[in-house]
Simulated assay, not measured.
Amino acid sequence: METLDKTDRRILEVLQQNARLNTKEIAHRIGLSVTPTYERLKKIEKMGVIKDYVTLLHADKIGKTLVAFCNVSLQLHSQLLLKKFEAAISQMEEVMECYHVAGTFDYLLKVVVDDMRSYQHFLTNKLAAIENIAQVHSSFVMTEIKHGTAFKLA
Score class of each variant (00 low, 15 high):
T3R: 12
F85A: 04
T104D: 12
G48A: 08
F85H: 03
M142V: 15
C98S: 15
R10P: 01
L81G: 05
H137S: 14
T7K: 14
K83C: 02
R10F: 07
C70T: 03
Y107E: 04
M142T: 11
T104Q: 12
V101D: 08
Q17D: 13
K24V: 06
R20P: 01
E94I: 01
D115V: 06
L80N: 11
A87Q: 11
Y38W: 14
E25M: 10
L82N: 13
G31A: 09
I26V: 15
S73F: 04
V141K: 02
E45I: 14
V101K: 10
V111G: 01
A19W: 07
D52R: 15
S33T: 15
D115L: 07
D115T: 07
K43C: 03
T55I: 15
D8R: 11
I26P: 00
L57Y: 15
T3C: 06
L80T: 13
H121K: 12
E39M: 12
L4D: 04
D106H: 03
G31Y: 03
A59K: 02
E25D: 14
F122V: 05
V141M: 04
N125L: 05
I44K: 07
Y119H: 13
K84M: 12
F140T: 07
Q120D: 10
K46Y: 02
K83G: 06
V67M: 05
K146P: 01
N71A: 13
P36Y: 10
D106W: 00
E131R: 03
A88G: 02
E2N: 10
H28V: 04
T3V: 13
A129T: 08
R9I: 10
H137A: 14
K43S: 07
K42H: 09
G48V: 06
D106S: 02
C70W: 00
V14N: 08
L74F: 05
T23M: 10
V112I: 15
Y99E: 12
K51Y: 12
L81D: 10
M92A: 06
Q91I: 02
R40K: 15
I133G: 01
H100A: 13
F85C: 05
E2H: 09
I26C: 03
H147P: 00
N18G: 08
K61S: 14
K110S: 09
I44L: 11
L123N: 08
R10Y: 06
L123R: 13
Q75C: 07
H58W: 01
L4R: 03
E97R: 13
S90Y: 03
R20C: 03
I133F: 01
V34P: 00
V111W: 01
K24I: 04
D115G: 07
V113D: 01
